Amino acid sequence: KRYRAVYDYSAADEDEVSFQDGDTIVNVQQIDDGWMYGTVERTGDTGMLPANYVEAI
């Protein structure tokens, strides 16, 4: 699945990823209600991200 960031996010922990509004997130997997795991296409960084900061595309 592919998602697009709708807000900027700065990683708060080493297992999270930072991204900017408009970034595409690929290979996304749902972890639980609030978190997903995926790769930021622009940077190649992979990690956890907050589900409410992205939307499906």
Rank of each mutant, 00 (worst) to 15 (best):
K1Q: 12
K1V: 13
K1F: 10
K1I: 13
K1N: 11
K1G: 12
K1R: 12
R2M: 10
R2I: 12
R2C: 11
R2F: 08
Y3C: 05
R4H: 06
R4L: 07
A5P: 00
A5Y: 00
A5R: 00
V6I: 15
V6G: 04
Y7I: 09
D8S: 15
Y9C: 04
S10L: 13
S10W: 13
S10R: 11
S10D: 12
S10T: 14
A11L: 03
A11P: 06
A11G: 08
A11R: 07
A12N: 13
A12M: 13
D13C: 15
D13N: 15
D13K: 15
E14R: 10
D15A: 13
D15C: 15
E16S: 07
E16N: 05
E16K: 10
V17M: 03
V17T: 04
V17F: 05
S18C: 05
S18I: 02
S18M: 01
F19Q: 00
F19C: 03
D21K: 15
G22E: 03
G22H: 04
D23T: 00
D23W: 07
D23V: 03
T24Y: 15
I25G: 01
I25L: 10
I25F: 11
V26T: 10
V26N: 07
V26A: 08
V26L: 11
N27L: 13
N27H: 09
N27Y: 08
N27S: 08
N27M: 12
Q29R: 12
Q29H: 14
Q29K: 13
Q29N: 09
Q30N: 11
Q30W: 15
Q30A: 11
Q30Y: 14
Q30P: 10
I31N: 06
I31L: 12
I31R: 11
I31V: 11
D32T: 14
D32A: 13
D32N: 15
D32P: 06
D33W: 09
D33E: 13
G34R: 14
G34T: 14
G34A: 14
G34N: 15
W35A: 02
W35D: 02
W35T: 05
W35K: 06
W35F: 06
M36S: 04
M36Q: 03
M36G: 02
Y37A: 05
Y37H: 10
G38Q: 03
G38C: 04
T39F: 04
T39R: 07
V40L: 04
V40P: 01
E41W: 08
R42D: 04
R42F: 04
T43S: 07
G44W: 06
G44A: 05
D45A: 13
D45V: 10
D45Q: 14
T46M: 09
T46E: 08
G47Y: 01
M48V: 09
M48F: 14
M48P: 01
L49E: 01
L49H: 02
L49G: 01
A51Y: 08
A51H: 06
N52T: 11
Y53Q: 05
Y53M: 12
Y53S: 11
Y53N: 05
E55C: 12
E55L: 10
